[in-house]
């Protein structure tokens, strides 16, 4: 597997270089997408399937879709080369940051202290997947704030009011495609959500998959996104944050600890919060893609 890992690392670098130096913007986005998939493979090789799933679904899939959607509308990049001082500065900065990362990871040593603690405490968390245990129980506070960040991003986009993409119907094959893919993504999202309790999966991956299916439906032209009820989607996008905050306060009242779930019922709490988060993340990503508000 050494050879495979070396080839994978080299391929990541090549894809990154292609994304940076491609003249055509679409080609650059395509290279970025490929790099995302390769990095997902690298995460898998590093034993982090949860991160790999998130990278493939959000990092490569949905970010790629958002970039492609915007690639046409941004004016062409300036063709004149950067001044050499800027090249030099960027190079020095990259080497410094890279060196700092290498030095930090070297000085931590082989065995970080966190995983053994998590392994000991996982049975108390209500779920068997250590990643979900950390995200939704031990460090649920962090995740609550992450959801707030996602909502803040959507709020900024709503304030800026970008021009919505004109959705031209994408031809006769797109609707049959959406007919097969959308039900599958709903099933898959439910599966990923439930699986998060005991294996890699969870709300972020499930929400991204759901949003992907809905985007396919939107691009098929069968449903005009304007008629989807943007207000409904907006409410859905705040639902996750609201449900999470209510759960935090309810837990505070019940157990005296913010997000300290009642003993024995942790799994139900976690699945309920994650269900709200899945719908919310999907709605947020959908609104980011199709634009949250009409420009006047």
């Amino acid at each position: 597997m050494m050879v495979f890992d070396a080839v994978l690392a080299a391929a990541c670098l090549v894809a990154a270089a292609m994304a940076l130096f491609a003249r055509d913007r679409i080609a650059a986005v395509a290279a970025f997408l490929v790099m995302g998939l390769l990095i997902a493979l690298a995460w898998l090789r590093l034993g982090a399937p949860d991160v790999a799933l998130a990278e493939a679904a959000i990092g490569a899939g949905l970010t790629g879709a958002l970039l492609l959607r915007s690639a046409h509308r941004i004016p062409a990049a300036p063709t004149k080369p950067l001044p050499s001082a800027q090249w030099l500065g960027a190079g020095v900065l990259s080497v410094a940051v890279g060196g700092a990362i290498v030095w930090t990871s070297m000085s931590i040593g082989a065995a970080p202290a966190y995983p053994p603690l998590v392994a000991v405490a996982v049975p108390e968390s209500g779920v068997e997947n250590p990643v979900t245990a950390v995200l939704l129980n031990f460090r649920a506070w962090d995740t609550l704030l992450e959801i707030a960040v996602l909502f803040a991003a959507l709020a900024v986009v709503a304030v800026v009011k970008p021009v919505r993409p004109r959705i031209a119907p994408l031809g006769p094959l797109m609707l049959p495609f959406a007919r097969v893919v959308l039900p599958l993504t709903i099933l898959l999202a439910g599966h990923l959500l439930w699986q998060g309790g005991h294996a890699p999966g969870g709300a972020f991956q499930a929400g991204a998959v759901l949003a992907g299916g809905a985007i396919a439906l939107g691009l098929s032209g069968a449903v005009r996104p304007i008629r989807w009820g943007r207000a409904g989607l907006a409410w859905l996008s705040i639902l996750g944050l609201a449900a999470f905050a209510v759960a935090a306060l309810a837990a505070e009242l019940l157990t005296g600890a913010l997000l300290g779930y009642p003993a024995g019922a942790a799994k139900a709490w976690i699945i309920a919060i994650e269900s709200a988060l899945t719908l919310s993340i999907a709605a947020t990503l959908l609104l980011l893609f199709f634009g949250p508000a009409e420009r006047h």
């Binding site: 994408l170 031809g171 094959l173 797109m174 495609f177 097969v180 893919v181 599958l184």
Partner: peptide, 20 residues
């Protein structure tokens, strides 16, 4: 089987879209 189905579907559809 699901992977194969999805790859076949998306491959055929994106191929069609690019050609179109």
């Amino acid at each position: 089987l699901l992977c194969t189905l999805l790859v076949a579907l998306s491959g055929a559809t994106t191929g069609h879209l690019i050609a179109r």
